[in-house]
Every structure is written in C-alpha cells, then in structure tokens.
Nucleic acid binder design. Structure first.
Lengths: 263, 263
DNA sequence: GCCAATTGTTTTGTATATAAAACATCAATA
DNA sequence: TATTGATGTTTTATATACAAAACAATTGGC
C-alpha cells in the first residue's frame, strides 16, 4: 500500500483522493495528464481515471491546452470567493481599508490567523511604486511577522505555548523569534503598545504597521496592516500620522463588529 | 432513492457528494449543521456525517461560531487562488491593468468566457468615488454585457448559434439582445469596430469600454474593460483618450501572449 | 422536570466502489 | 515498418463504502 493506512472508518476515500487531485493540480504550475496525476498520488491509473472523470463532469477540472491534460476548473474559484464573502469581516473592512490606503498612500491589508499561518483576506495596493504580488489568499508563518505577533496577542499564554509546541521556528531575519520565550516577548510588547511597527523584521527594506481588530467579545479576530518598501514611507510621519490613522481604521472595523472596548 | 440515478459507472459518488457539500456551504450565507446539510442534499445523516468528517479533517470545512455548525475552510481559498495564478494571462495582465487604471483613473477589469458567463479574473478599482463590490471571481451572463459581446466575437457564427441554442435570454435592460439574431448583430458590430462602448447597456447609470485580447493564434481569449458610473467618466475624452488607452493596453497584453496581428 | 422531537454518533448487512489485469491506442525508436 | 513502452479505457472479482436502524445526547415546550 501507499502512505497512511485508513485507520479512520468514517473517512470517505473517494472524496479524500478527489480533493488531493485538486490540490496537486493547484500546486502544479502546468496542466497534468492522467498518468502524471496517478503517479503523483501513488494511485492506480484506473482509479485516477474515475476521479478525473468525476471532477471533470462537475467542472472542477477542465481540459488543458494539450490533449489529455487537465487543470483546475472555474468552479474552484466560486468556492474560494464564497469563502471570502462568507467572512463577514471582509465586506465590513473593504471600504475602510480602501479609505486608509487613499489617505496614507500606502498599501493596506486585512488578515486573520489560520492555524500557524497568517492568511491575507484582502488588500488594497498603493498606487505609487511597484505593484506587489497578489496577496489575498496567501499565507505566511505567523511567528515570522509583525502581523502574526499582532494576531497571536489574542491567545492566552498557555494557548501560545500550545501554538509553539512542536513548531519548528527557523529564523528568517535576525529579528525572527525562534522560541516560545522570544515569541512571547514580542506578543507581550504588542499587548502593551497596542500595535507593532516593523522595520525589516521579515523583509529587508520593508516596513509595516500592524494593529489588531476586536470583535464584540473583545477577542482579537483580525489585523489591519499598512506596509510597503521603506522608500515609500515617510518615517517622520509614522507616529504622528500613519499609526493613528491605522489605529482609527482598526477601531472602526472593530466597532462595526460590535466591539465596545476602548483600546 | 433520491435525484438522478447513477447511470455513470465511472462516477465516484463520495467525491461528487463531498463537492456538493462544499457548493451548498458556499452558497449558504451562514454556517450549517450536519442535519441541515443532510436535508439540503437529500441524504442520510450518517452519510452526511462521513462527508463532513472527511472534509473537516482535510480542512476544507471548519467549525462555525455556533456549536455543531460548519463553514467553508481556508483550503478552498488556496484552490481558488491556485486557479487564478495558473491562468498565465492574469499575471501578464495585472501590472498593465493597474497602469491603465492609474492613467485613466477608472476601474479596469480582465475577464474571460466560461460557458455562458463572463468570468472576472482580476480588477483594479478606481481610487476615487465609491468602492465597488469585489468583482474578481464573479460571473455575469455573457449575452447581457458589452464584455460578453466582446468575448463572443471569438466564436464563429455557427458556434454562436450553438451558444444561443437552448439559452434563455430574458432582457435586463432595453439594450439587452434577446435572440440569436440580435446578439449576433451586437457581436458583428463589435467585430467591425474592434471595441464596444456601453452606456447603461447593463446597469443604468454605468458606462464601460470593452476591448478584446488575442493570443498567438489570433483567437480572442480575454477582454480588457474600463468601467464605472457615468459620473466618473469624462465623456468628451472617451474617443480621444479612454478608448485608445484601453486598446493600447489590450494590444500590449496580446503581444505578451504572442499575438502578432495588427488589430 | 418531564416528555417529545431533533440532532449527532455508532453499528452492521449488503449493495457497490475499487484496483488489478486485460485491452486499445498512440509515439518513439531502430 | 516493426517493436517497445507508455498512456487512456474497459472489464471484473472482491474488498469496502454505504444507508438503515439503533443508540446517545441535546434541545424545546408545557
């Protein structure tokens, strides 16, 4: 047999493998043939055939340019955007983030914690300077970024310890915390300040401001973030302008979520 | 039994139903319980249980706020963005569309034909005026919009006839074509002009310019589109400025795809 | 605080999804 | 052109996914 045996009696193997086909085709930069899929999954060609047949019929796969090759179909886009629009926070935050981008001239982002990663839910790019990569939907390891520290401030110390347990924390830059203690120090600092300002903490030459968003229960549920290359920041105005604007935006979003605190 | 019997021996029912669970949860605006899912799919609770169990384990579903409810998980976002970034045209077009937005000050979009719909692959919102809804990933019936007519110009007359066959075409506005003949007239007009300018053709008070993008085979593969509320357009500059800029952008994208024609 | 109804979970006999093997089709090389 | 290897497709015997039924745990109404 291949990989992990099915200890789980409730598992639906057809579904499991079908979704893996989608994941593999998503990761592949180019369409794949039936045999390639079967090999990548360590599966018989006949079974791969049936999976592809089903996915194709449901329009989750479509034919590639080359004959007998397949790529993700447009249906997966539907699911992705259904996910985004089912997150109420994205629709609330969008106009406010656009406004923050307009008043500051810097790119703005909204992100949440998903497992060990920071997940970008939406962003508004600065108009000047280079156009960065699409960030919505991308993930970054939370322990490595200011946004991550900001989001982790929603966790209790014991939750944070559990978060670190078994987590490999190689340093990205000299600022990266590499242990529970150093990460906790970062998070505690964020808690007392109410924000994180990063100068090249993750990307050399890049700066950002991260401020938490609270829900009606007072829990940290998201993070508003201004970021860009150092060249695009006017550092004199950081504490007098960018930071208060970002905090105001985060608070406005929090208010719309029902937050009544005074952070 | 329920719905359509499984005539297809190659169908993987577990996969089929699992994906339907995702679609139903995507369409639902709020998390659903196991029983609700089972009822919506006309399925036994025990089967729904197994499907949800599998999807949850794979992180395609996650727990909702309420106990025993489920929503789409973040994994579906991965697929959605994998789809987008696997479309080479999106990465080619993105900076050029951003540039077009910057020089014109109007929102720009890239879209392709998917079945009977126009599918928005990416957009760059105008910075002034209201911020429109997220458009990437949304669909509009092709026969109703200037973009649709533009994209349909890639089809031969017989293909267009096949496209209309069995398609219900209720009018959205008084400009909507409602038959093969009237649609063909629209498409032919586009072919001779090389563009479509719409004044309230789909949305009263909204205007847009649509120009096709060609690939190296000379086939229409996408559409570049400027659009916004009438109030945001300077109509005097339409033919002298907006239109040539849009055409230039579309041609630049076409060139990058290998198009060598002179349209 | 009881009862009824609804929901989530487990069990289990049976209908069926599955992978091996056979077959068919194509591409490349000699 | 014949031969080899690989790929897509079909068949089929058997392992197993499935839905009904039983069970457990909630919830809501009176």
């Amino acid at each position: 047999m291949s990989e992990s045996a099915n200890h789980d009696i409730y598992f639906v193997p057809g579904l499991h493998r079908g979704l893996r086909v989608l994941e593999i085709l998503g990761a592949a930069k180019t369409p794949m043939s039936l045999s390639e899929i079967a090999r990548a999954m360590d599966l018989s060609r006949s079974s791969a055939f049936r999976l592809v047949y089903t996915l194709r019929q449901m329009e989750f796969l479509k034919d590639g340019e080359q004959k007998n090759t397949y790529t993700l179909g447009a249906k997966v886009l539907n699911l992705g955007f259904a996910y985004l629009s089912n997150q109420p926070i994205t629709t609330i935050a969008r106009p406010l983030l656009a406004q923050l981008r307009d008043t500051t001239g810097v790119s703005t982002h909204l992100s949440v914690l998903e497992g060990h990663n920071v997940l970008y839910l939406g962003s508004h790019q600065a108009r000047s300077g280079f156009v960065s990569n699409m960030v919505t939907g991308t993930r970054v390891e939370a322990y490595t970024t200011a946004i991550g520290w900001c989001l982790l401030s929603g966790k209790s110390d014991s939750e944070l310890a559990a978060f670190c347990k078994g987590l490999d924390m190689p340093p990205i830059t000299k600022h990266t915390p590499t242990s529970f203690q150093t990460l906790k120090a970062r998070v505690d600092q964020m808690r007392t300040d109410g924000f994180v300002v990063s100068h090249g903490f993750r990307e050399p030459g890049g700066s950002s401001i991260a401020v938490p968003v609270w829900d009606q229960a007072g829990k940290v549920v998201a993070c508003v973030n201004l970021s860009g290359p150092d060249s695009g920041f006017d550092f004199d105005k950081l504490k007098s302008f960018y930071l208060p604007e970002t905090k105001a935006t985060a608070l406005r979003i929090s208010r719309e979520l029902g937050y009544e605190g005074s952070n």
